[in-house]
Structures are given as C-alpha cells and as structure tokens.
Design a protein around this nucleic acid. Structure first.
Lengths: 188, 188
DNA sequence: CCGGTTTTGTTGGTTTTTCAACAGATGAAT
DNA sequence: ATTCATCTGTTGAAAAACCAACAAAACCGG
C-alpha cells in the first residue's frame, strides 16, 4: 500500500484513539481529528465516510492488534488456553481507558459486537479443527453462548471498575469455561 | 508551509540524526535515510541536494532549536548571563551523543563552524546593543576571539568525555569571560 | 585491474494530499 | 424565531510524494 495512505490512516486512527480517551465521542469533530492527526480535513473524508465509519475501522484495527499481540509472543498452544486467556485480559486491561470507552459507546455497531464476533469466530474455528461431530446449529448456538458469556463478563468487569485482579478474573472465567466443557481442555 | 513538506523534512532530519548516532556519517546512504524516515528516496532529493546538504540543514535546525530552547524558558536577561550559559551547556550535554558526532565530523563545513558563527553573531549583537565605542575591526576580532575560545572549550570538554560537571565547566568558563571583560557583566 | 554489486542523482507518469471555497445542516444564544 | 458561528461533506485545481526505471559513478573482492 502507498506509504502516504498507511501513514495518514495510522495518524488519523491514532488521533481518534487519543481523543476518545479525552472526551465524549459525540463531541469529537472531524476537525479535531484532522488537527490532532496533522492532516488535512479532506484527507479524513478520503479514507472514511464519517466519524462512525472511522470508529468502526479503529475498532477493527484495535481488535486485530489485540489478536496479533496475543498470538505472536508465546505461540504455545492454540485457542482455548488458560495462559492465553490471561494474556488477552491483561492486554485489554493495559489499554483499559480506551476499551472502556469503546465498550460504553452505544450509538454505533458497537465494540461489543465486534469483540463478540471475533471471539465467536475463534471458537467456531477451534471446534472445526478438533473435529467434534455435532451439527452446525448446535455449534453456532454453543459458540454464541460462550462468546456472549465471555464478552459479558469482561464488560461487567469494566463497568464495575475492575473489581478483581486480571488473574482472579481469568481463574473464575476459566473454571466456568471448563464447566461448559469448552473442548479440548488445555490447562497449560 | 505545506503540511507534507514540514512532516517529511522533520522525518528525514530525524532519520539522519538517529543514524548519525549509530554509525559513521560516510557510511550512511541516502537509502538508509529514506528508509528510516519512511519516505521515498526521491523525496529526500527533492528537499536536499545530497547528504552533505542535508547534514548542513540538520545542523542549522539543531542550532536554531538550541537557541530557542535556551531563550524561551526563562527569558530573564539578554545574552551574556551566567545562568544562560549554564542552561546552554546543559542542553548540549543532554544531546551529547549527537553533538559529539556533529563536532567530530571533519569533512563538511562542520558543526564547529556553525556553532562558532552563531555565538559570534550573538556577541556582535550584544556589543552593538550596549553601544560601546570601538571600531569595527576591534569588535570583529574580539567576537572571533571569544567565540572560538568558547567553542574550543566545549569541543575540548566533549573530546575529553566531559571530565567535569556542567556546573563546574560553566563556572570556569564564566570566570575566563569575566577576565576578558565581556561586556556588560551580568552575574545573575 | 576487472566484473559485479551498490549507490547516486534524475526522469516521467500516476496517485495522494493539500488548500480554499462552497452550500447546507446543526446548534446555541439572544 | 433569528442570528451567528461552527461543523459537515464535497469539489477542483495545484503541489507534493510515490514508484519504477534509468545511466553513470563509486565501491569492493578476487
């Protein structure tokens, strides 16, 4: 991709991230964003149709980053690993203010939905890989059940201003996952 | 000035600064610079005729930055103030690796000459402001005498790997300036 | 000294960004 | 309700940056 596009998109997304941590999303104008990104206002429009579109792309990018950061470092074990879960939660906690805001934005196809679908996808893939013989409907329902549960707990954890440590949260969440026999159980 | 120019020039200069702190100037290629700056090679050429030109502009910019950073914070008193001298030396020390390299580059119209002429100019201006009645030749000689002395001491200080604190260096340099009656003596 | 690789500057055509100007929408204060 | 200011989204022309390709120069290693 063209250097300029990459750099400007990064700058613009970065700008929105910063601003989101500073003030209410609705109060943020395209001008604010362009100014913070040190980019012409028109450039923003050339990449995103409006600030909601931009927010969407930001969320997507942020989640991609989250996934990559969680899978590259110690690539030991595939999806449902306890250490992996812990790692993920820690990563989220590290950017807490950003995620908290993203989770609290109601207007748009919200962050929650993105996060949910990403986890959902992970679970589906995991089930496919392990060749468990259940029909598609059951798989879908199970994946949806689990993903909304996980996201729900994380969301709750945020809204309660993180009432327990990442480790404790992981422990408790993990035992619930075990109870529901998220297959195959890896305790590493 | 156009946003793109400002940003790219900054990136390019920054890149050279970094590289200079890493390896010998002669070993640095335009490619290295462009790569580090994340800029097309052609863009470098569009702003600077070659790496020596770029180095020159870097030096100039760095010195301008040095002057501004020394004059804006506590703008108390005009040029020859002891606190100002100390402040300047500290600022130089802070970016020691960069300045050390810049001072040691022999090839080009070196950093030493720029620094010298900048200080020289300051001294000349100071003499003009205070309306001392001496002929131009004497003024020029005095300014040259003082500026090379100051730069020489700083250069020496670097080459000896800063054998004394910034404060001590300032003290000793200041007393020498006093001995030579740098006018008017402000001890603030 | 030679042959291969790298670096240098330059070119031309394409894409992106910039900037200024626009009309319409939104919002707040009088 | 009306003004005033700001924000929105779009336009067109100009400037800048991009990239790939080039010949010439400089730089090794055998």
């Amino acid at each position: 991709m063209d250097r300029r596009i990459k750099k400007n998109q990064a700058a613009i997304m970065n700008a929105l991230m910063q601003l989101i941590a500073e003030k209410e999303f609705e109060k943020i104008t395209i001008n604010d964003i362009a100014e913070r990104a040190d980019v012409n206002r028109g450039t923003v429009y050339s990449h995103y149709s409006d600030k909601y579109d931009l927010l969407d792309k930001c969320i997507e990018a942020q989640l991609t980053h989250l996934m990559e950061s969680c899978y590259s470092p110690d690539a030991t074990g595939t999806f449902p690993t306890k250490t992996l879960l812990l790692h993920t939660i820690k990563e989220i906690k590290q950017n807490a203010p950003l995620y908290k805001t993203l989770l609290s934005i109601k207007d748009v196809s919200s962050f929650r939905i993105h996060l949910n679908s990403m986890i959902n996808k992970q679970i589906m893939e995991q089930m496919d890989e392990t060749n468990v013989s259940i029909d598609d409907l059951s798989k879908s329902i199970f994946a949806q059940f689990m993903s909304s549960a996980i996201v729900g707990v994380i969301e709750w954890w945020f809204n309660q201003s993180m009432p327990c440590s990442t480790e404790e949260l992981t422990d408790r969440l993990w035992s619930l996952l075990e109870m529901n026999q998220l297959i195959p159980l890896k305790t590493s």
